[in-house]
């Protein structure tokens, strides 16, 4: 099944942590250079990624429905959802910053969920694709994930600074859900093994 030019098909395992190439053995072994456990491919890559992706997907719903922060002015609360905060930025004329937050907190997480889903389907159903393009997609997904934490950090700063008796900003329940989505999808991307895409290509 494996593409013949792959190191694993030729009887070699590349250490995940230090990149040392060792001869494949049948029993569990550790890397002679860095002592980490050797695996030909990430263990249970598809199962783990699927589980993390689904948890991320379900938490993405409360993250968008519930308010991410409450602005209390003289006792009157004004809840903001993620989308609401962006609309407010647009309305007050701060379009570049609004676009930045739109990309970081809406486009990146949702495209990431879809992208990892597609990668999983591709690896599972052994689609014959241009593996190079799909690997680039994986690389982009793995790279941009952390930037979604922007909203969470922004809230931690706002909550800290805007705390005057009459005017207060309080973090809402969506913040926890959103932070969880970002972290779960980061773990999902980390657990996905892009080499599975290459293993399935028969015309290499």
């Amino acid at each position: 099944m494996n593409a013949k030019t792959n190191a694993l098909a030729q009887g070699f395992i590349r250490c995940h942590d230090c990149g040392y190439l060792v001869k494949r053995v049948d029993h569990p072994a550790t890397c002679p250079r860095c002592d980490s456990l050797l695996h030909g491919r990430r263990p249970h890559s598809l199962q783990r990624t699927t589980a993390l992706l689904f948890s991320g997907f379900f938490l993405y719903i409360p993250a968008n429905i519930f308010p991410i922060m409450n602005v209390n002015q003289f006792g009157v609360g004004d809840p903001h959802t993620i989308a609401g905060g962006i609309i407010e930025l647009f309305n007050s004329g701060m379009i570049p910053i609004g676009l930045l937050v739109l990309v970081a907190s809406i486009l990146v997480p949702s495209l990431k969920l879809i992208g990892i889903g597609l990668l999983l389907l591709c690896a599972h159903f052994r689609w014959q694709v241009n593996a190079r393009k799909w690997t680039v997609m994986y690389r982009v997904i793995a790279f941009v994930g952390r930037w979604s934490m922007l909203d969470i950090f922004m809230i931690s700063i706002l909550v800290d600074l805007v705390n005057f008796g009459a005017v207060q900003i309080i973090a809402g329940p969506a913040a926890t859900a959103f932070a969880a989505v970002v972290i779960l999808t980061m773990f999902a991307a980390e657990n996905f093994d892009p080499r599975l895409l290459w293993d399935n290509q028969q015309n290499l």
């Binding site: 792959n6 190191a7 690997t135 994986y138 892009p194 080499r195 895409l197 290459w198």
Partner: peptide, 8 residues
């Protein structure tokens, strides 16, 4: 080996 496509 390439870490992402496992090319020898």
């Amino acid at each position: 080996a390439c870490p992402e496509c496992d090319l020898l």
